[in-house]
Design a protein around this nucleic acid. Structure first.
Length: 468
DNA sequence: GCATGATCATGC
DNA sequence: GCATGATCATGC
């Protein structure tokens, strides 16, 4: 894949400028990304063997990105619409991160993607939009900005190929539509970042008096660009860095995901929850105690951060306390459902179906004392990968369909109980009984969710012991 | 000992 | 302010 000298295979506006052995195939995404990743953990000066007194010639905002294009990828930067690597359909984004006081990396700013053309956006749909094409295949090069450093000495912290994660796509689509709608209704001059979640229409002009025309109003509007919000970029970066560390660990050990996770837990097995809590500086003051221990073992701080390896494999992580007899102390909850949604959503499109068809990782904490002893110690017993057998999925479907029917009929006192369905039941899941959601009948009902029966999980765990 | 209804700390 | 991932409380 690699090794085609781009000097001879460059096309179009890509023109080699430096002669330092630019070595990638501009038609191969893999080749470009691999070549780019050679900059990870290093600087342009080191990688290119530049003299200590050599200075960056490009000035201003975007100057560093242009330097990377010119001296590393060997083509003349351009602002023509179209991808930076046209033959591979890849968009290059060289963007700064900064180190926070606590040592973690965070994006320095929003990521500007492309200018909003008020005249043409009104004829586009999201799927045919300029924005969508710019975000389809991205090569991110996150570098660490340091104020007094020459840019040639900036370290690249994460270089990765990126696509809009599936779970983020609908939000970005909605954001795009919100922005497009304002232009369509002649309100381009009222665009605001607060209207949207991940995407924003940020102002893009050094001179604030500059304006542009919009199609459905005489009022001139500020020029704006589509950008990924800084908060959204924080999650992109966090996911990328987490994946980076996991991949390195996996490569080092030559492990698949399951073995890698087992290896991660190995040193902690048998330890008491107090020991683990002390190890991670966690206090047992809340209901998320065991969840937080689990997340810390997996290398996560705080619950806002997604676990990259689980994100990628879409693993459902559940921490469970087991009684002496092997029965989980509690059932397993899922997010609350919306009464008005589930009546319309068929089983295979449902959130419950999506949840139950993901692989699960159960992290088992054994309660050591008697049932009556609330202060009984616990220890980390082990982990189990599990997926729901299809016959049980059919039983869950029965629970879902029953629930739909009962909600349709407004019979909220008869929702499926754990004694009525082998696998799942429905129970409250809100802040308290006043935490409600609207019903199709126009009334309010306490939030509820589907739960996996404790008894059912006990049976599944027992089966796994036998087959081990 | 379990089922069921009620509730909570956290982090964004 | 709210979703999340759970635990608590009570009675049968």
């Amino acid at each position: 894949m690699r090794g085609v000298n781009s000097m001879s295979s460059k096309t179009g506006n890509q023109r080699p400028v430096y002669e330092h052995g630019v070595d990638y195939d501009p038609s191969s995404r893999f080749s470009i990304v691999s070549y780019a990743q050679q900059l990870e953990k290093t600087t342009l000066r080191k990688k290119l063997g530049l003299a200590p007194n050599e200075k960056l010639q490009r000035k201003g905002k975007g100057g560093f990105g242009e330097t990377v294009e010119e001296v590393y990828f060997g083509y003349e930067p351009n602002s023509i619409q179209g991808p930076d690597f046209p033959d591979a359909g890849l968009e290059l984004k060289v963007t700064p991160v900064k180190r926070l006081k606590d040592g973690t990396l965070a994006p320095k700013e929003r990521l500007v993607v492309t200018m909003i053309n008020y005249m043409t956006i009104v004829t586009e749909t999201f799927d045919s939009s300029t924005l969508e094409s710019k975000l389809r295949d991205v090569l991110f090069m996150f570098y660490e900005y340091e104020r007094d450093k020459d840019p040639l000495d900036y370290f690249f912290r994460l270089v990765e190929e990126w696509h809009v994660p599936e779970e983020d796509r609908s939000t970005i689509r909605k954001d795009w539509e919100t922005i497009a709608e304002k232009v369509k209704t002649g309100h381009a001059h009222e665009l605001s970042s607060g209207d949207t979640m991940y995407l924003e229409a940020c102002t893009k002009a050094a001179d604030s008096s500059k304006t542009r025309e919009q199609p459905f109003s005489e009022v001139p509007a500020k020029p704006r660009a589509f950008a990924l919000k800084q908060s959204y970029m924080r999650s992109v970066l966090a996911r990328g860095l987490s994946a980076q560390s996991i991949e390195r660990e996996g490569k080092q050990e030559g492990l698949d995901l399951v073995s890698l996770v087992k290896t991660r837990f190995q040193p902690f097995l048998g330890k008491s929850s107090e020991e683990l809590a002390a190890l991670f500086g966690i206090k047992n003051t809340d209901k998320g105690f065991y969840s937080r221990i689990t997340r810390r073992i997996l290398g996560i701080q705080g619950s806002g951060t997604k676990i990259a390896e689980f994100e990628k494999a879409d693993i459902n992580l559940k921490s469970i306390r087991l009684r002496q007899n092997g029965m989980p102390k509690e059932a397993i909850s899922f997010p609350a459902f919306r009464y008005c949604d589930i009546v319309d959503v068929p089983w295979e499109d449902s959130d419950l179906y999506a949840q139950l068809t993901r692989p699960f990782l159960f992290v088992l904490f054994q309660i050591e004392g008697a049932e009556s002893d609330k202060e009984a110690p616990t220890h980390l017993k082990g982990i189990r990968f599990w997926s729901m057998p299809s016959e049980d999925l059919a039983e869950a479907e029965r629970c879902y369909e029953q629930t739909r029917e009962l909600v349709r009929n407004g019979q909220y006192d008869h929702l499926p109980r754990s004694t009525e369905n082998r696998c799942c039941h429905v129970r409250p899941h809100g802040k308290d009984s006043h935490d409600t959601l609207p019903t199709p009948q126009g009334t309010q009902e306490p939030k509820r969710c589907f739960w996996l029966n404790a008894r059912y999980i006990a049976g599944q765990l027992a089966l796994m012991e036998i087959s081990k």
